[in-house]
Design a protein around this nucleic acid. Structure first.
Length: 837
RNA sequence: GGGCGGGUAGCUCAGUUGGGAGAGCACCGGCCUUACAAGCCGGGGGUCACAGGUUCAAGCCCUGUUCCGCCUACCA
């Protein structure tokens, strides 16, 4: 579903920009997901009773390609079902030949610049995946069931002992020192002396190092250089011995003495038992601490000393940092820039080697004769040093992100200087989730700047994550993934797309609920039905190319045309600023509530009953023009239904073959008509008031009602008279009288709207106590509003300091409410006079 | 430890220069009104987490408190 959201947003932009006349390149593709994919195929092998070592590297790689051929298209197919309008001919894969060439070029080039080095360091090791991981690939999780064990190490001369604390007692087997802070008075005399490491009976020194926090625990720390990054640093500073006590599977090795062969978990248990027995375990406390887990298999990570390849990242990060600081690349929403800066500023070297088989094999060879290492663009035939031909290639492969970091240019043919590259690099926008801001965005920035000398993209739009209804991140391991294909089958791609777009508010996660999707499915349906209505009202000889003259429009038609202009402006502004939810919201509101609920109903009298041919023609023309624009506006979000409707609509001969190729509508100022909007708002207010009386009196829509309208403002009355057919139709009246001097009918319900009084005679229809209740309710509501405005206007400071237009607005409201209250009170009084209190 | 985001109607959430608290779903009442019952019409419902402050005016700005989520970090 994350892919669905991500792709949807890109698709909306691509379709929108195409309609706006841009030449759009959208290149689809996937990375090879090294560890995850290798795990899948290893599981397949395990099911067959095999493992990768049994079949060998070449056969294994073949199997992976086979698996990829069978299921690698899954995501791509999902995207196609969703309607993604990528350039599918340009689909790329990080293991393709061209991209692999780019990987090799980048590796060798960075190596030659001294930005890649190999060495023995503590890295994050997954004992299950059997590989090193970068810092980013370790997920920390709070474990509150941990313990802090105090271990007692006797001094070698038998004069006492020193206590150290640890959360990982099994590592004590590899301790090669005990460290204290040099300025710690308590231990001053002990520095330089030795302790006997229990269980191993080894003598190890007590050293002084600033790293030790005197406040924590006993103020003394056991040092295990081979199994802890800090201890490794301490070890380097003091030239300590390094003892590895674990192998690559997390099993204790021969250096662990009698514990050899035990798993790290079993060993911990046994070490604790044995120390306890020796009386060297003075305390055990419950302890809550963070434990690193493999991001692919959740296994607990082992900090492990190992020979690996690294990228010296600082020089690359500096440029990537500056590019965003200087605005060459914008990150949207901007909050993320801070996160990006923070990470770039505190970045550490990137471990890029992985001990798996699926991936780009590191282009380094070792000479069997002289031991020289060769890093080369072309596979070497012989050792340049000694000429020997026994060359052995490095078995490690590169981190998948190393190759995906090259995506913006490797997919365009780099290192060749292709036309594509010339034309499209740097790209306009990258759309991605924040969860891969560091993994991917940061690396693309660094690689792009290093190898193209230009940022890879001008905008980075960071969207939210799709979560389940409990706000949990959707992931395969949690098993709470909602399959987009299932949703598409059930509700349609357009419904899913609209839902995701409507939820995609900047900086906020998407909690996807099926009820919401069902709701937007109804919207698709609504649009479809509105299109049916439109189609069945267009003549055979309707001319879609005929110009519509603003002068011939009815007030309702002018109103909808004006509102269409405003909606277009809103949607364009929203899409230009990546406010997808605002665009969706504006279109939803306009289409359903203005076009369907009001406009179609308002047009029915003209369409069905008018004797005037020109009037009917105008109604049809505006109906057509509005719907035709609605589907073009909605096309980026709901391409399927919009295309279908558009294909069914009559259209000018010159129109393109698909809605995809049409222009995005723009506002047409000649259709702006604020006066018509004002008039229609009055008409609608009157209709709503009458409907309200009907509803509150529980009168069914079939019940014929008459209405009498009176008011002082002749202009308003004229407007209402002009629109009397609309009022009669939408309020379902049998008769309507509009007259400044009209008599209030006896036994009538009264309403107020648009500055006029509305009476609906109800003699014999309802219980008048009910109407009295309704009026009392209305009075109470109006009183509450009135007192608020009254208080405001009674405040001299408000009158003095608020802008004049705000004050005037309050005054007008004050007058209206006073008048309304007066009329309601009179109405209630007369009612009580005829019907009794 | 540092950083970020959030607490608005029963639920999920909008609310962009501070000036009438909104949507969808759910709920209540009335309707098969010939585009649509996946619909139409009407309605109820919120001391905008809490406490202060700035302002004529605060959901929005400032300070503090509290709760929740996420990211990040080498305290054994």
């Amino acid at each position: 579903m994350g892919h669905a959201l991500n792709n949807l947003l890109q698709d909306i932009l691509a379709r929108y920009k195409r309609q706006r006349g841009y030449n759009v390149l959208w290149m689809p593709g996937t990375d090879h997901a090294g560890i995850a994919t290798q795990n899948v195929v290893e599981r397949q092998l395990a099911a067959e009773g095999l493992d990768r070592h049994a079949i060998g590297r070449e056969k294994f790689i073949e199997r992976v390609w086979q698996w990829r051929r069978e299921s690698g298209g899954t995501i791509i197919n999902q995207l196609k079902r969703l309607g993604s309008s990528c350039d599918w001919r340009r689909e790329r894969f990080t293991m393709d030949e061209g991209l692999s060439k780019a990987v090799r070029e980048v590796f060798v080039s960075l190596y030659e610049k001294g930005l890649i080095y190999q060495g023995d360091y503590i890295i994050n090791w997954c004992p299950r995946c059997h590989t090193a991981l970068s810092d980013l690939e370790v997920e920390f999780e709070e474990h509150n069931d941990g313990h802090l064990w105090d271990l007692q190490y006797p001094l070698a001369d038998g004069s006492g002992s020193i206590i150290v604390s640890t959360t990982r007692p099994e590592t004590m087997l590899g301790d090669t020192a005990v460290a204290v802070n040099g300025s710690d008075e308590r231990y001053r005399d002990l520095v330089g002396r030795e302790v006997i490491l229990p269980l191993m009976e080894r003598k190890i020194p007590i050293i002084a190092d600033d790293y030790v926090d005197m406040e924590f625990g006993s103020g003394a720390v056991k040092i295990t250089p081979a199994h802890d990054p800090n201890d490794f640093e301490v070890g380097l500073r003091h030239g300590l011995e390094i003892v590895k006590v674990m192998d690559e599977k997390g099993v204790m090795n021969e250096n662990a003495g009698k514990y050899a062969g035990l798993s790290r978990e079993e060993c911990r248990k046994k070490v604790v038992e044995d120390l306890d027995e020796l009386g060297l375990l003075p305390a055990v406390k419950d302890y809550s601490h963070n434990v690193g887990h493999c991001y692919r298999c959740r296994t607990i990570i082992e900090p492990y000393l190992s020979n690996q390849w690294f990228v010296r990242i600082k020089p690359l990060a500096e440029r990537a940092l500056a590019a965003v600081k200087e605005g060459e690349t914008r990150i949207i929403p901007q909050n993320w820039e801070k996160t990006y800066f923070n990470w770039m500023e505190n970045i550490r070297d990137w471990c890029i080697s992985r001990q798996i088989w699926w991936g780009h094999r590191i282009p380094a060879w070792y000479c069997g004769a002289c031991g020289k290492m060769i890093v080369a663009r072309q596979d070497p035939e012989a050792c340049p040093e000694c000429g020997a031909r026994e060359l052995r290639q490095e078995t490690d492969v590169l981190d998948t992100w190393f190759s995906s970091g090259l995506w913006p240019f490797s997919t365009m043919g780099w290192p060749e200087e292709t036309e594509t590259l010339q034309k499209w690099y740097p790209t306009s926008v990258l759309v991605t989730g924040f969860d891969i801001l560091f993994f991917w965005v940061a690396r693309m920035m660094m690689m792009g700047l290093e190898f193209r000398d230009e940022v890879p993209f001008k905008d980075v739009y960071i969207h939210a994550l799709v979560r389940d209804e409990h706000g949990q991140k959707m992931s395969k391991s949690r098993g709470n993934v909602i399959d987009p294909l299932v949703i598409i089958d059930q509700y349609g791609a357009d419904a899913l797309r609209f839902t995701l777009a409507a939820f995609a508010a900047q900086g906020r996660d998407v909690s996807l609920s099926e009820a919401r999707i069902a709701g937007y499915r109804n919207f698709v349906n609504k649009l479809w039905n509105a299109a049916r209505f439109t189609l069945m009202n267009l003549d055979e000889d309707f001319d879609p190319a005929a110009a519509v003259e603003p002068a011939v429009l009815s007030p309702a038609e002018s109103w909808i045309s004006h509102r269409l202009n405003r909606t277009i402006e809103e949607v364009v502004a929203a899409l230009d600023e990546y406010r997808f939810n605002d665009a969706a919201q504006a279109l939803y509101q306009f289409t359903w509530h203005e076009f369907c609920d009001w406009f179609l109903e308002l047009e029915k009298p003209d369409l069905f009953q008018s004797e005037d041919g020109d009037r009917r023609a105008a109604a049809r023309a505006v109906l057509y023009r509005t719907l035709e624009r609605i589907v073009r506006l909605l096309h980026p979000i709901m391409p399927f239904v919009c295309e279908e409707i558009w294909q069914n609509l009559p259209r000018p001969a010159a129109a393109p073959g698909s809605i995809m190729a049409t222009a995005y509508p723009g506002a047409e100022p000649e259709f702006d008509d604020p006066a018509a909007v004002g008039a229609m708002e009055r008409v609608m207010a009157v209709i709503t008031a009458i409907r309200n009386i009907r509803g509150e009196m529980n009168l069914s829509p079939g019940q014929p009602l008459a209405a009498v309208i009176r008011g002082k403002d002749e202009a308003v009355l004229a407007t209402l008279r002009e629109n009397a057919p609309s009022i009669i139709s939408l309020a379902r009246l049998s008769a309507l009288e509009i007259d400044a001097g009209a008599e209030k009918p006896a036994q009538a319900a009264a309403g107020l709207a648009a500055g006029v009084e509305i009476f609906v005679p109800l003699a014999g229809l309802v219980d008048f106590r009910q109407e009295a209740e309704r009026l009392k309710k209305a009075i109470k509501k109006a009183e509450k509003e009135f007192s608020g405005v009254d208080k405001k206007l009674g405040n001299e400071k408000f009158l003095a300091k608020a802008p004049a237009e705000v004050v005037e607005k309050e005054r007008a409201k004050h007058r209206e409410l006073a008048e309304k209250l007066e009329k309601l009170r009179v109405g209630l009084k007369t009612l009580e006079a005829v019907s009794g209190p």
